[in-house]
Simulated assay, not measured.
Amino acid sequence: MLIIRYETAGAVHVGVAEDDGTVRRLGVPSLGLLLALPTDEIRSVVERSGPAEDGAVKRLPPVDGQTEVWASGVTYVRSRAARREESQAPDVYSLVYDAERPELFFKSAAWRVCGDGEPIGIRPDSAVDVPEPELALVLNATGRIVGYTVCDDVSSRSIEGENPLYLPQAKVYAGSCALGPGIRPAWEVPDATALGIGVVVRRGSGVAFEGTTSTSLLHRTLDDLAAYLFRSMHFPEGAILSTGTGLVPALDFTLHEGDVVEITVDGVGTLTNPVVAATPAAFAWLAAR
């Protein structure tokens, strides 16, 4: 099953989507309030889902309220190599890869997150933009891993490569964060350290880029990443923490408007997003949702 946010009859609800597509409503008003609960209570709420919805359902991004999205960097060998290739200050990436403390950075407020099927953005002032396919941890208010979702940590390689201090502009802008299609409960994932991750970028009738990796190649443990995020931060409605990417195209690849990015994490789901230019007007709908 997947824990989802969805809209039906003009109202937004939290529910579970069964493998056969059946959607059942949960007894909580928001995902944030669900993540405010202890792990055992979250499981109890999820397993007490109600009757099936009988109307049309539109799925929404699996994050709301005060829940924040954060991300990890340089957690795979390929990520370290790619950052060194693009950067004018390559040593910082080798240093953080080998350091005890991981690179963690803020990625998105809940209301700015794009969902499955919704557009993602590439910056008009960037020469090289790439998808970053990642497993994302869903953490409750005490920092426990209670689920997993798929993240596209869309990034400007050219802006970050110019100067590491430009990381926020390379990583945080309209359409730069997509999550979905829902949250796979942690108790349904036997081993999150051995999940295949794949990405396909479709361009017209062809494939512009594709690749696969595995969470088994992560340089850091999932619990360690979560623990560092919660060291000096309080998340009353939990947090989403993306765990970094092991799939980075060569520097001669960049996303184009009209591309479609498909990211699959085995056992979690597939996230699909078309690509548009990240102008303020193109993503004004996020604030009105």
Rank of each mutant, 00 (worst) to 15 (best):
A281F: 09
R80G: 05
R144Y: 10
R289S: 12
V146I: 06
P236C: 05
G65S: 10
Y166V: 04
G21K: 11
P185F: 08
A56N: 10
G267N: 00
E188Q: 15
I240G: 00
M1I: 08
E68G: 11
F209W: 15
K107C: 00
A56E: 13
R231D: 12
D20L: 10
D266Y: 07
P280L: 03
G115E: 05
P190I: 09
A208C: 12
D20G: 07
R231L: 11
T264A: 12
V74E: 05
V248W: 10
R43V: 12
E100V: 15
L35T: 00
D152W: 04
D40G: 08
I197Q: 03
Y6E: 08
R5E: 08
V45P: 09
R48E: 13
V276E: 04
S72P: 10
E262V: 06
S176I: 04
E188G: 12
S44M: 15
T272Y: 01
A288H: 13
E188L: 15
L179K: 04
E162S: 09
S94C: 08
T193P: 07
S87G: 05
P119I: 00
E162H: 09
E68P: 09
E160A: 04
E210W: 08
E85N: 13
V275T: 00
T243W: 01
A186I: 03
E132M: 01
D266V: 08
Q66H: 12
R123L: 14
W187A: 07
A174W: 10
R5C: 09
D20H: 08
E160F: 00
V128E: 07
A127E: 15
T245S: 14
G182E: 04
E100W: 09
G121Y: 00
S79D: 04
E18H: 14
D266N: 08
A82R: 11
A227N: 12
A250D: 15
A127C: 10
G50N: 13
V14D: 01
Y166Q: 14
S87M: 04
Y148R: 01
A170G: 15
L271H: 09
E86T: 08
G267C: 01
N163I: 06
S30G: 03
V268I: 15
Y166S: 14
V130E: 06
V146G: 03
A226F: 04
G267I: 01
T22K: 10
A110P: 01
G267W: 02
A208Q: 04
A281R: 12
I145K: 05
S158P: 01
P51L: 14
E118V: 01
P38R: 06
A194G: 12
P164M: 07
C114K: 06
L241V: 03
I42K: 00
L217C: 11
A239G: 02
T264Y: 09
T22I: 13
F209D: 03
E53S: 12
V96H: 07
R43Y: 12
